[in-house]
Design a binder for these strands. Structure first.
Lengths: 213, 213
DNA sequence: ATCCATTGGATAGCTCAACTATCCGATAGT
DNA sequence: ACTATCGGATAGTTGAGCTATCCAATGGAT
């Protein structure tokens, strides 16, 4: 199909698609002449992936670029993609930030991970995310207590065990990679949404339907 | 304290603090003359809250404005604040979007919530967030299966039950409100971070330490 | 064969969010 | 009395993510 049909079918403007082409998010179509190139279903699927990561996952273009580059790289295998995706998700803490309090929070996280016996790379960005949150909580007068953390740890462990088990080991590479990504990025939003819904429910039951309009 | 001391203690520039004052995120100090105003610990706490919501929760200024306005409104009670905070968190789906597929996704969500018997307001934004994610997943060829959702539902329910139970009913109003907010916004990040860590652990165990650097 | 809408490719511009910088007149403290 | 600082206002900057315009080259319809 031509770019205009790609535009129609994806719901994106031609300009936006050209922008994604420029940025290297979308591979070029097969050129049949100077002024004509053809696109196929793979391009359409790629656009859908980009939009899902942008709109639902709220990832910046730069992060999506890194992810799709890894997706297109035949050499990258499934287990490695998770690391790449997680790195792309951030957060990006400028190195050497914040001094003593930051280092203390990092150490809290490190010792928590060690205590749990989780096999996690030492520079996983999720460590920074957790440390950042610990730091903010402390600053607001809500210091972290391990026992308070327990339900979150259990929930995280249960869900990720389920997710990993669900990966079909015989799926074709592209689909397996996509499945991993989807799990990492989109099901995280599912979890957040369900949590907010459950929270509203719990609050309504406790306070007798407080703020529900 | 004066604005310069507030700047030093919060780590924000004077300009940024002035910006927050202009935007109504930070209440004005008590003016002692045309060119002098004094700020107290409450202002410092407010700045810490703003930064936590911005940096950790990644909320836009507009959402934070709505939240702190509710915080400062003596008439708003704890149960109502949760609704306000959740509304401020978004997402903001432009009404009347996307047509048939969108409506179908919304209905999936509505029937799910009904099936679970959860007491959730009909216009809770979390419904939209979930619908949006369902839609994206379907577009990528990963349709939602209720059984796949089960672990997420259970996790969400367990966590929010814990959170609601943890609210001390005798805490002073300001602190109770803050606690609710913190739970909603910051512990969500804790959950995400733990999930990513757990996922990396599960993947490492299954594939023999794949991408961990 | 001709002609005009469409395409690919390049470049420049726009919009929004979140600050950041400058200016100005008043004043507090020395 | 004087000068660094403050509050308040206004304007400018930066980065992300598009969006619009231009241009020469088609290529399908006539």
């Amino acid at each position: 199909m031509r770019i205009s049909e790609l535009s129609d079918r994806s719901g994106l403007t031609v300009q936006t698609i050209k922008f994604y082409l420029r940025e290297g998010l979308l591979p070029k179509g097969t050129a049949t002449s100077t002024t004509r190139a053809y696109y196929d279903e793979r391009h359409l699927r790629r656009l859908r992936l980009i939009r899902a990561l942008r709109e639902v996952g709220d990832l910046p273009i730069a992060a999506i670029t890194r992810i799709v580059t890894a997706l297109d790289d035949e050499k990258i295998e499934l287990p490695d993609l998770l690391g790449i995706a997680q790195h792309a998700l951030g957060p990006y803490i400028p190195p050497g930030a914040d001094g003593a309090a930051w280092r203390a929070a990092k150490e809290d996280v490190d010792s928590l991970v060690a205590e749990l016996g989780w096999l996690v790379g030492p520079d996983a960005p999720a460590r920074d995310l957790l440390a950042q949150t610990f730091l903010a909580l402390r600053g607001l007068g809500f210091p972290i207590v391990l026992t308070e953390l327990r339900p979150y740890i259990d929930a995280a462990a249960a869900i990720s065990a389920h997710e990993t088990a669900r990966l079909a080991p015989d799926a074709p590479r592209e689909r397996a990679l996509l499945g991993t990504l989807v799990t990492t990025v989109l099901y995280e939003q599912v979890l957040i949404a369900l949590h907010r819904l459950a929270q509203e429910d719990a609050s309504a039951r406790r306070f007798g339907n407080g703020g529900a309009s």
